[in-house]
């Protein structure tokens, strides 16, 4: 049980770090959103799953309410994170930020 928690914590830390580094490695808003959204969502899910494992191993009313809150936080993150990044990307495009070295831009052609 403990081993599983350490594995989840390590995976979460690695992928969250990847998201943070992706913010600096990529050239424009859209590619940064790619890296940041995917990696921090995945990493945070594993960090929270570690807390779920910890609460389940602990048991009792405290452990169970810990599991409930962690699972709810996971659901909220999974729902809100991609939606928020989608809103940001659309707003950036409508504000006139061009994608870096794009081969094709169908949204620009429609003219919205």
């Amino acid at each position: 049980m403990n081993i599983l928690m350490y594995v989840f914590l390590a995976v979460g830390a690695v992928f969250n770090g990847l998201g943070a580094v992706a913010l600096h490695r990529f050239p424009d808003v859209y590619t940064r959103l790619h890296g940041a959204t995917k990696c921090t969502t995945f990493g945070s899910i594993f960090s929270i799953l570690a807390v779920v494992v910890y609460g389940a191993a602990r048991g009792g009313s405290v452990g169970t309410s810990m599991v409930i809150r962690a699972v709810l936080a996971l659901v909220f993150l999974l729902l809100t994170n991609p939606t928020g990044s989608h809103a940001l990307a659309r707003a950036a495009h409508r504000a006139g930020i061009k994608p870096f070295r794009a081969v094709v831009d169908r949204l620009e052609e429609v003219g919205k």
Binding site: A36, T40, T41, I48, S85
Partner: peptide, 15 residues
Amino acid sequence: VALDTINTLVVAIMV
């Protein structure tokens, strides 16, 4: 985008 990323990380930190 950076602020959005920080928000996600802060939620994980709080949990």
